[in-house]
Simulated assay, not measured.
Amino acid sequence: MMKTKASLLTLALLASASCSTPQPGPNVPAFQPIPFAKWTQDDAAYRFYPGDKLSISFQHAPELDREVTIAPDGRISLPLMDPVVVADLSAYELQQILESVYGRELVDPSLTVTPTEFASQQIFVGGEVGNPGVYPLPGQIDSLQAILMAGGWLDTSKPEQVIIMRRGRNGQVMTRVVDVKNGLKDPRKFDVGPLKRFDVIFVSRSRIANENQFIQQYILNALPLDFSFFYDLNDRRF
């Protein structure tokens, strides 16, 4: 009888434990931090993107010269070689790759890669603005002008804390919080130079306590497909 009661008590305790919700340990982080690069104003080399056109000229084999358009999958096709991914490469990086490949067939594979036409230049303006979305980049504009293009900031916004996200040198992602509102009086408060292709400008609703966490919770999920590809933070280069 005693053994039966003990067994029933044990089963009751096990059932109670299985129904309870486990609590995370004290050392479990709320999110995994992203290693963003330090913001710099250096002009990085232009990186190719689908839709761009480029000219490839061989110094000693002009019959192989081609003008090609980068396909939606980021590849180009050239004679004597399989299709090669060129999206996100600079002209110099692509030149080095092509000379290495053609070096197997040519005595002197020296060649020149020249961008001839660029696909649409776009930026993304999101968050607490009148009309969030993707906008063409009309020349050299700053973050304030971009926000005005998107209908200006809303009454619910914090224009003193606007996040700018950009792909910089070596493909690393850089971020910076700027004060666009007070930048009207002091341009140094939001001086990140002219915006560049695929820059993200995000106007927050409230004070940003943790820039890294804010980006993961609000910005990355709001990006359109093209921008999500451009800011793929699972890419090992970042």
Rank of each mutant, 00 (worst) to 15 (best):
T69K: 13
E105L: 09
P33F: 15
A12N: 12
P29A: 10
G152L: 01
I141E: 01
P62N: 06
Q121A: 13
Q41F: 14
N212P: 13
I164N: 00
T156I: 12
V178Y: 01
A45S: 14
R166W: 02
A222G: 09
L94G: 03
I219T: 11
Y231N: 04
V85L: 15
R47E: 14
D186M: 02
F214M: 07
I219C: 07
A30S: 15
W153T: 04
N221C: 04
V129L: 04
V177P: 02
K53C: 03
F227L: 12
F202G: 01
T10M: 10
L225Y: 05
E67R: 06
R205P: 05
P138N: 13
R75N: 11
T40N: 13
D43S: 13
I76M: 06
Q216A: 05
M1P: 01
G25V: 08
Q96K: 10
G130S: 15
I208K: 07
V178H: 00
V178N: 08
V180A: 10
S18G: 03
Y49S: 09
E63R: 07
I147K: 04
R205E: 09
P22R: 08
Q121F: 10
K189N: 08
S16W: 10
P35N: 10
I97N: 07
V84D: 09
N221A: 15
L89Y: 13
S120L: 11
N221P: 06
D199N: 15
R197N: 12
Q161R: 07
K158W: 05
I97R: 14
D42P: 00
F230D: 01
R176A: 06
Y218K: 03
S18L: 12
S7V: 02
K196M: 14
R166M: 00
V203A: 06
G25K: 10
R104L: 13
D42F: 11
S77H: 12
A146Y: 08
L144G: 00
L89S: 05
S157A: 15
L137P: 07
R205T: 13
R66D: 10
S16H: 06
V101L: 15
I97A: 11
D65W: 00
Y46M: 14
E67T: 07
G130F: 09
R176P: 00
L14T: 06
T40E: 12
L80I: 04
Y92C: 05
R169K: 15
T40Y: 02
D226L: 11
F202E: 02
L184D: 02
I70D: 03
Q23V: 10
W153V: 05
Q172C: 06
G51Y: 04
E93D: 15
S100C: 04
G74P: 05
E99V: 02
G168D: 01
S100H: 11
V200A: 08
Y49I: 09
A61F: 00
P33R: 15
L111T: 06
G171I: 11
K189C: 01
R205I: 00
V203R: 02
G103K: 12
T175V: 04
R188M: 12
A45Y: 09
S55F: 01
D186Y: 04
G127K: 04
P224H: 11
V134H: 04
I164V: 10
P79F: 06
L144D: 02
F118N: 00
P62C: 03
T21K: 06
G151I: 08
R207W: 11
A91I: 05
Q145W: 05
S206F: 12
D226M: 07
A15M: 15
G139T: 04
I70S: 07
D155W: 01
N170Q: 15
N212Q: 13
P22N: 09
G193S: 07
